[in-house]
Design a binder for these strands. Structure first.
Lengths: 240, 240
DNA sequence: CGAAACGTTGAAAGGACTCAAGTAGAGTGG
DNA sequence: CCACTCTACTTGAGTCCTTTCAACGTTTCG
């Protein structure tokens, strides 16, 4: 059930059977949510963190005029808000983008996990720092890439992150995002995302239709994105 | 020497004399750097983290065309790269913006610190999560605020962060950034930043000249920024 | 005092937005 | 099984914010 999570941990760290058992035990409950449901609101006290088992969700913030910015996307196996373990209340909202199953890890149990397995304390800290590294790359995109580059970069990043859990290959992957969702990730309007997608499609680089990203020319895509996967720490920390 | 750091910790957590002594002891060395010096390069293995004692520095990433994006700003008392403790190599560069003094905390010493004082483990984790929260707010700015709003927001944020260490008051604060530096924070060109600063000055909202931010109308500034300091966790985690 | 970096301003171009209208597809109910 | 509705997608035309390019003013400091 948390296989995707373990897959991701083991890509970067050795996890002993003992540690694995402890991680499994910290998930005390599983909850299901339909698509487009806000499941955590900014500012609310939060006594647990949520491991995404199935589906896709995002963290987002918004402005008074209705402008919404998605700040992080999460795929199966990600902890959506492990940072709540230290922050206790979040500065952002969390929303499902597709139907999701979430494993609940209560913070008192997480604390006991770290006391019993100090290595995992640093490993989950690494996890939140990885989220931050991804957010930094998004900051670079929003600040310095144009709409085409941003779009291409998002498709590259998601390919890597999904490939890690066996949900993407060279040809593409399923992605349950509307063009509006993509626009909210990229700081664009959905109208402009539509035009960019059209251009990428007509240039034979990548095609996004019917919830599937079809990579037509991976090299060209990564060139358009100026993609360098280093920030994803695909092999974990330490000398690469 | 690390008084500003302790000031910030104590605004959010109780720190015992014992813990304070341990924190002081983890700084094994102090280094000085002139302004505009890259002190950590992306990808290099890193065996220590740097506590900024004096001055201002930034983390940044860049693209091949020379476009540079500053992803975080750091003021006195901030750990510039505590996240390197888990990441071991960084996905971004670190550069001084003014002359800086940095306290060096070797990771083996940090590890011992956390073993001896488990509370501090979570407190420093909180610290990196706070960095991430700030980065998220920047993501919102870059994605959804216009140039005027972004500029105003940056001035508001820095006022709060500097006020916390006694380096800002109602009237303003010293800021050693060029207009080009500000542009690299905000995802704009320096030419446009210049125009926006002119407008904010002529509207009697805020004035930035000669390395000093002079706040003329704080309410109007915060309104222009749509500023809500919640994301800075000024009173620490827990129920606000 | 002169060079270099920083700041200021104008004019023109361009990328992304807004507004508007129309198409396509999925689900609903009669 | 076919209208109906709702949401998502598509396209065009015009506008606006920000960039680009270029020149000039100002400050700093060796």
């Amino acid at each position: 059930m948390i296989e995707t999570h373990l897959l991701k941990l083991r890509a970067r760290f050795e996890i002993s059977p003992d540690e694995e058992a402890a991680i499994r035990a910290v998930i005390s409950e599983v909850r299901e949510f339909p698509a487009d449901r806000v499941i955590v609101r900014a500012g609310e006290p939060l006594g647990f963190s949520s491991l995404l088992i199935d589906g896709m969700l995002c963290r987002f913030k918004d402005l008074r005029d209705g402008g919404r910015q998605i700040t992080e996307l999460h795929v199966a196996g990600d902890f959506a808000d492990m940072h709540a373990y230290t922050l206790k209340r979040l500065d952002h909202n969390v929303m499902t983008l597709s139907a999701c199953r979430m494993g609940i890890a209560r913070h008192e149990d997480v604390k006991r996990l770290f006391q019993a397995h100090p290595r995992l304390h640093d490993i989950y800290w690494f996890g939140t720092n990885l989220d931050a590294a991804i957010d930094r790359e998004w900051t670079l995109s929003l600040g310095r890439r144009d709409a085409r580059g941003r779009t291409a970069h998002l498709f590259c990043e998601l390919r890597e992150r999904l490939a890690m859990i066996g949900m993407a290959d060279e040809t593409g992957y399923e992605l349950p995002l509307t063009q509006t969702d993509i626009a909210e990730c990229l700081g664009l309007t959905s109208v402009h995302v539509n035009r960019v997608l059209k251009e990428l499609r007509e240039n034979g680089i990548v095609e996004y239709r019917g919830g599937r990203v079809k990579i037509l020319e991976r090299a060209a895509l990564e060139r358009a994105a100026e993609f360098d996967p280093g920030y994803l720490y695909l092999q974990g920390p330490g000398e690469p």
